[in-house]
Design a protein around this nucleic acid. Structure first.
Length: 111
DNA sequence: ACTGTGACACTGG
DNA sequence: ACCAGTGCCACAG
């Protein structure tokens, strides 16, 4: 059958789902999540989803290069929470080489 | 239907 | 290494 499905599966659900599967102690980037969700060009929407969908490990979402894009006090909060999970920080960036989480089958077709 | 929005990514200086 | 500007794309009102 044709899974026309997704009556309303905007990318919000796809992105939120990807973020939810990020294991503790690991992190990911907006671009990677957007790409894994099926929208390689919509890194910016990932940020919106984080604000719209509560219950997500927003702290595990970083900007390109492992940089914290979150401004204000929340930026420190994110870094604090990540370190609590075991994420190593290199100054203002995270060591993506060790903590970047790779999504399983990050392809937009077949699985 | 259109405009505004956004915790980005990337390039150049 | 850091700062600033530009481009992108889908969703909400």
């Amino acid at each position: 059958m044709k899974p026309k499905a997704v009556p309303k599966p905007p990318m919000a659900a796809a992105i939120a789902g990807k973020i939810r599967q990020i294991p503790r102690g690991q992190v990911s980037t907006y671009g990677a999540i957007a790409k894994a969700a099926g929208y390689p060009r919509c890194a910016r929407h990932v940020s919106k989803v984080l604000n719209q969908v509560p219950g997500l490990p927003w702290q595990r979402v970083l900007g390109a290069g492992g940089r914290i894009s979150l401004p204000g006090e929340y930026g420190f909060e994110q870094r604090f929470l990540l370190e609590a999970e075991g994420v190593r920080f290199k100054g203002r960036h995270v060591d993506l080489a060790k903590c970047e989480y790779h999504f399983p089958g990050a392809r937009r077709k077949t699985a």
